[in-house]
């Protein structure tokens, strides 16, 4: 007669957390930061079509790192939730806090009850009518929510990026300063991120309704004070573009996470 395997709950949860953390850490990072006229979200993303940052509702944006299909499913659910809520109640009743709580419940449930936790970290940001109303919620793989009022970093090397960003952060700074600091923090001391490898989006405070706007490469180059040619993708034979948000190709198959990387 065979005995069923026994794994202590502590060990089981720790394994799941390690698995999620490790795979999220492989993903390319992103930064969301408040600036004078809204919220800037800047991600390292080589894909032009598979976005990490998207619009949820009038004043709410979404960003995710980790496994693309998982955070994109969360994004869709968020859009569906927000649009139905706005239809049933009113547009002003749709807020980031309740959406962040729903995400946290779902991600937390998956972490506790499913074999495989979600390998994502997501961000829900809402721009207020003035800077005191700006909200940034950072939701982790186990469903814990962190409420940030200055900036938030998601993905790989988050700690190092956070410390670099904390040094540069100035309350009420301009968009150009915020974007320069964010790209410098993402790149680190040894590398300068090329404009085509950045995905930049804003929540603009002064917009009357839909505050979300994507910043195209040419405009990003302009904001960073670079020549327009910086926005062009340099054809490099040695560099192949990873698929799906730069994430899928980096990640191992589920279950393969416990093999040393």
């Amino acid at each position: 007669m065979s005995m069923p395997f026994y794994v202590a709950p502590e060990q089981f949860m720790k394994d799941k957390a390690d698995f999620a953390r490790k795979n999220i850490a492989r993903g390319r990072p992103l930064i969301a930061a408040t600036y004078a006229d809204g919220i800037l979200i800047c991600a390292e993303n080589t894909s032009k079509t598979l976005h990490k940052v998207s619009e949820i509702y009038d004043r709410i944006a979404f960003a995710g790192v980790g496994r693309y299909n998982e955070f994109d499913q969360l994004r869709r659910s968020g859009v569906q939730y927000a649009d139905v809520k706005g239809f049933q109640f009113s547009r002003e009743d749709v807020d980031a806090r309740s959406l962040a709580n729903l995400y946290a419940q779902h991600i937390g449930n998956v972490f506790t009850h499913e074999m495989k936790p979600l390998e994502v970290e997501i961000l829900v940001a809402e721009v207020g009518v003035d800077s005191s109303g700006d909200q940034i919620f950072h939701i982790l793989y186990d469903g814990s929510v962190v409420d940030e009022d200055r900036f938030s970093v998601l993905g790989g090397e988050a700690e190092a990026i956070t410390s670099r960003m904390a040094l540069a952060y100035t309350p009420g700074w301009s968009l150009t300063d915020a974007l320069k600091a964010a790209t410098a923090a993402l790149g680190g001391p040894d590398q300068v991120l090329a404009v085509p490898d950045l995905e930049v989006a804003l929540l603009i405070r002064t917009e009357s309704r839909r505050a979300f706007r994507r910043i195209e490469d040419t405009e990003t180059a302009e904001l960073l004070g670079l020549p327009a040619e910086a926005a062009e993708v340099v054809a490099d034979a040695g560099q192949t573009k990873p698929g799906a948000g730069g994430e899928l190709a980096d990640l191992p198959e589920p279950g393969a996470g416990d093999t040393p990387a």
């Binding site: 869709r76 659910s77 968020g78 939730y81």
Partner: peptide
């Protein structure tokens, strides 16, 4: 209201 989560075959697109 809860977060609408659909299985791929049930998703309204």
């Amino acid at each position: 209201m809860t977060l609408p989560l659909f299985r791929p075959e049930d998703d309204p697109g």
